[in-house]
C-alpha cells in the first residue's frame, strides 16, 4: 500500500509529528517503501490463526492494593520544563 501526501498529513496530525511540505514527498516515499516490505504479509492465509500479542503465554500478575509510593514531587519536577505551584504548565487547554 502506498501512502500519499494527504495520508502523511493525517498521520502527522495523529502522531503530532510535524512534517514540512518539502519533506512530505520524501516521507511518503520512505513510508511507502516500508509498507511495500510489510505487504508481503498479505500473501499468507491466516484465517485460522489467532493473533499473538505476546511471546509468552503468561497471564497478568496482580498487585496488592497497598500504597508504596511516597510524594516525590520535588524530585520529579526538578526535571520538568515548566512548573508553577506544583503544577505542570502547558499552553492554555481549551475544551
Amino acid at each position: 500500500m502506498a501512502v500519499d501526501r494527504s495520508d502523511i498529513a493525517k498521520l502527522s496530525k495523529l502522531a503530532r509529528i510535524q512534517i514540512s511540505d518539502e519533506a512530505a514527498d520524501e516521507a511518503a516515499k520512505s513510508i511507502s517503501d516500508v509498507l511495500a516490505l510489510v505487504d508481503q504479509l498479505q500473501a499468507v492465509n491466516t484465517d485460522c490463526v489467532l493473533p499473538m500479542a505476546h511471546p509468552l503465554d503468561a497471564v497478568q500478575r496482580l498487585r496488592a492494593d497497598v500504597v508504596t509510593e511516597a510524594n516525590q514531587r520535588e524530585m520529579f519536577q526538578s526535571i520538568a520544563p515548566a512548573v508553577q505551584d506544583g503544577l505542570y504548565l502547558v499552553p492554555q487547554v481549551i475544551e
Binding site: I8, L14, V34, L35, V38, L41, V49, M52
Partner: peptide
Amino acid sequence: LVGTYALSAGYYDAYYSKAQKIRRL
C-alpha cells in the same frame, strides 16, 4: 508514522492484526 498508519482505522486488521497472526506462525 509507520506504526500510526498500521494501527489507524481501516488498516488495523490488514497490518497489525495480520502481523500478530504471522507472529504466532
